[in-house]
Amino acid sequence: MNRLALFAPLAVFLVLSIFLFKGLDRDPTELPSALVGEAFPAFTLPALNDGRLLSEQDLKSQVTLVNVWATWCFACRIEHPMLNQLADQGVAIVGINYKDQDAKAQSWLEQRGNPYQFNIVDAQGSLGFDLGVTGAPETYLVDAQGIIQYRRVGVVDQRVWDDEFKVLYEQLVGKEK
């Protein structure tokens, strides 16, 4: 009994090592998402270009990638070609132009190409607030029922798409057919 007790510090050390070792690869900036599995929040906001009023109903009927972007966001520049590529592959992408100016956003899309089916103008950041957006870019995968299935904070590039989105996206699209 006493001999076994001598090993207690070693056991504590090993357990602690496992936890600390696992903590090494964790990204502390990655937050648990409050909205995954929840319905896309209700909103009524104008569209970029034509100004018609959009609501959460416009996101239903197909699996959509909702991308939060802005012209002031540097990482969005890096992300944009990937979005163009995804749109070419037939992925439905909707933009939320977050805390931005319409004129700047329009010239951005003219210069870099427009991967978005339409853009929601969120000048005050109110929709962003309801979504729990902490900055741009952020990308949400929303299914045809308007339920948020996945959230990515930061740039979506080829690796992120392949690792995190692709399988889920194909599953959701397959379910619709």
Binding site: L31, P32, S33, A34, L35, F129, D130, L131, G132, T134
Partner: peptide, 8 residues
């Protein structure tokens, strides 16, 4: 706020 930004 928690419903939007999680318990973090």
């Amino acid at each position: 706020l928690v419903s939007r930004y999680s318990e973090f």
